[in-house]
Nucleic acid binder design. Structure first.
Lengths: 228, 228
DNA sequence: GCGGATATGTAATCAGCGATTACATTTTGT
DNA sequence: ACAAAATGTAATCGCTGATTACATATCCGC
């Protein structure tokens, strides 16, 4: 078992490097396996026992790192949320225009795109049953940061006299509810029963977002909230 | 046990009348108990064994009436959907105006109100994991009927030249996604982390709906899509 | 370095779940 | 009345989350 020690050291380097005892860094491996398992079979396909199995440890081992399943899923949610925020940030960098509505649209599209490509991650961070949102400082902070970003953009839009209704919080929540609902309808496979084929869904979602955004503007520029 | 027979006959008349053997009409009792159980502890509080316990039968008995849990929950969803449709119908009767946007708003508010009062019923009919939506003719028909109602109203609005964007399907799906998202945010308890207190949530949701609806109109009447 | 304290992993076990099977009982149709 | 069908039960399987007692590896103060 001298290889065991070598593996431990190697595995511990890139990660938190906090634990290199028996397994290496089991905590992070558990999170990674849970994330993968979720991506394969959905949120409810994640079981502590299967995660442990994949990590090559006993069914009781995970309980040394997480008091219960909710704690594990919360850690998974934190990871998913971090990736989501990175996606948002990337989209904002890619949006050259400084027009606030355009930037908001970029955020909305990034949200929809991310949720479409990572349905289970979206499901996890949205779930208030599988995770302990209130108990995670990181989740709260990430959420607040995204909100603040939106409010900043909306306030700038209001300052420029672009908005018909000057209530950033109302607009922000309405927009969030819209993209949240769109994402869930897509993931739950509800579009077919609403007359939208699978392939059209993405385009439909973007048009929905635009329909909402253009409705916010004071002077409607014919059709699009942006030009692209 | 001559009373048993009498009860059987009585119980069997209003219902499917298919079963009046040992228990009476176990099938319907199971659905009712599942509905109640869901209302108490949420969707995942429903277990076949607990439902059976409450119905006073063995854990295996429900499997005589439903091939598996999904089938039971689908039957529950059908009942919930029927109640939801009744709610919509009632709201439309109560809305005196024939202005199509006003009637759409009445539907939207009825949806939000119903989801708020019956969160788990809403969750059940929305779930594409716990139920077999495609396998239920009743669910599909009810869903289609609600859609048709919306499209009819939107087409009338378009005919009257009220809409800025003449695409009933797009508007319908966007509206549905919005109220769906609002309902889920409320139920998942997300409003507090978005700066909306519990008591304000209902008002906020209605304002969100109005914000969206007023954005649809060609000539914006200052603030409200209706006068009330 | 040594040795106890601590961190980590395992084995065994419990109760609850969905589901199946073999069997028992009641109702029904003829 | 009696066979067939419908309905309910008991026992069981494999899965799950979680707990307990125990085993072992690592760390830290001396």
């Amino acid at each position: 078992m001298s290889t065991t020690k070598a593996n431990r050291v190697e595995a511990g380097k890139a990660a938190a490097s906090a634990s290199a005892y028996h397994h290496g860094n089991l905590r992070e491996v558990l999170i990674a396996q849970a994330l993968e398992l979720a991506a394969e079979g959905g949120l409810e396909a994640v079981s502590i026992r299967e995660v442990a199995r994949r990590a090559g440890v006993s069914p009781a081992a995970p309980f040394r790192h997480f008091p219960d399943k909710v704690a594990l899923m919360t850690a998974v949610a934190e990871e998913a949320m971090a990736r989501f925020r990175a996606e948002i940030a990337k989209a904002l960098v890619g949006e050259v225009s400084d027009h606030p509505i355009r930037r908001i649209r970029a955020i909305g599209r990034a949200f929809l795109d991310w949720a479409r490509r990572n349905p289970t991650h979206f499901e996890i961070i949205s779930s208030r049953r599988a995770i302990d949102f209130a108990g995670s400082a990181s989740l709260g902070a990430d959420n607040a940061e995204i909100q603040a970003q939106m409010v900043r953009l909306l306030e700038e839009a209001a300052r420029r006299g672009l908005l018909r209704v000057d209530d950033p919080q109302l607009i922000q929540i309405t927009g969030r509810a819209l993209v949240y609902g769109l994402a869930r309808m897509l993931i739950d496979g509800q579009f077919p029963s609403w007359g939208v084929a699978e392939v059209e869904a993405e385009r439909m979602m973007e048009r929905s977002l635009d329909l909402f955004l253009v409705g916010l503007l004071k002077n409607q520029p014919a059709e699009d909230p942006g030009h692209s």
